[in-house]
Computed example of a mutant assay.
Amino acid sequence: MPKSPTKPTLLHKVNDHVAVRMTIIFGSIWCVYAFLVFSLIPLAAPAWQNTLLYISNCIQLVALPALMVGNAVLSRGTDQRAAEDHAALMEILNDVRSEVSELKMVTNDLARKTNAATSQRPSEVVSFSNEAVINVTENEAHEAVAPAKG
């Protein structure tokens, strides 16, 4: 069951900041170099091996939960951005669907008008911009009567 969103307290903000900082630090190459040097200390000082082993175990016990919490905090932001992106994409999808629906209506109306225009008998009088009027049947009659030159 998802938790209800509550306003984070100062303690939560500090804990989240520390966890993220630890995740960033433990995830850096400099931390790898430091642990490499730390792991080579027993070669130089074998008497310190038990103390270094204890320190190493303590670091592991602290680092593992810190990394898990840091990753959880970082993923919260990612999850929130993903939810916002999803909402925006759903809004865009609904807009596209309505536009496609309008285009289908316009296309169907245009097809209906085209079919109606092609099924009508051709007009005998054609007008262009209310300026030139041509009587189609007269032109056809003149063409049929006119002798062929040649």
Rank of each mutant, 00 (worst) to 15 (best):
M1N: 05
M1Y: 05
K3N: 15
K7Y: 04
P8R: 02
P8C: 02
T9D: 12
L10I: 09
H12G: 09
H12I: 08
K13A: 13
V14C: 11
N15S: 12
N15F: 00
N15P: 01
D16P: 01
D16H: 03
H17W: 06
V18I: 12
V18W: 00
A19Q: 00
A19V: 01
V20Q: 00
R21M: 07
M22F: 04
T23V: 03
T23F: 00
T23L: 02
I25G: 00
S28G: 11
I29G: 11
I29F: 06
C31L: 07
Y33R: 12
A34H: 08
F35C: 02
L36P: 00
I41T: 07
I41A: 02
L43G: 05
A44I: 14
A44H: 12
Q49A: 15
N50T: 06
L52W: 02
Y54A: 06
S56D: 13
S56P: 00
N57I: 11
N57K: 10
C58T: 03
I59R: 04
Q60T: 06
Q60I: 05
L64T: 08
A66F: 00
A66K: 00
L67R: 01
L67D: 00
M68Y: 04
G70Q: 01
N71I: 05
N71D: 12
A72S: 10
A72V: 05
V73Y: 01
V73T: 06
R76A: 04
T78C: 03
T78W: 02
T78E: 04
D79Q: 14
D79N: 09
D79T: 04
D79A: 12
D79Y: 03
A82R: 15
E84I: 15
A87T: 15
A88W: 07
E91V: 07
I92F: 13
I92S: 07
D95Q: 08
V96D: 09
R97P: 05
S98T: 12
E99K: 15
E99P: 00
V100A: 14
S101Y: 06
S101W: 12
S101P: 03
L103M: 10
L103E: 12
K104L: 11
M105N: 11
V106R: 05
T107G: 10
T107A: 15
D109H: 06
L110S: 13
L110P: 02
A111K: 14
T114S: 13
R121G: 06
P122F: 04
S123G: 08
S123Y: 10
E124T: 03
V126F: 03
V126I: 11
S127P: 01
F128C: 07
F128S: 05
S129P: 02
E131T: 14
E131S: 13
E131P: 01
A132T: 12
I134Q: 03
T137I: 15
T137D: 15
N139D: 05
E140W: 09
E143T: 11
A144G: 15
A144Y: 08
A146S: 13
A146Q: 14
P147K: 10
A148Q: 14
G150V: 14
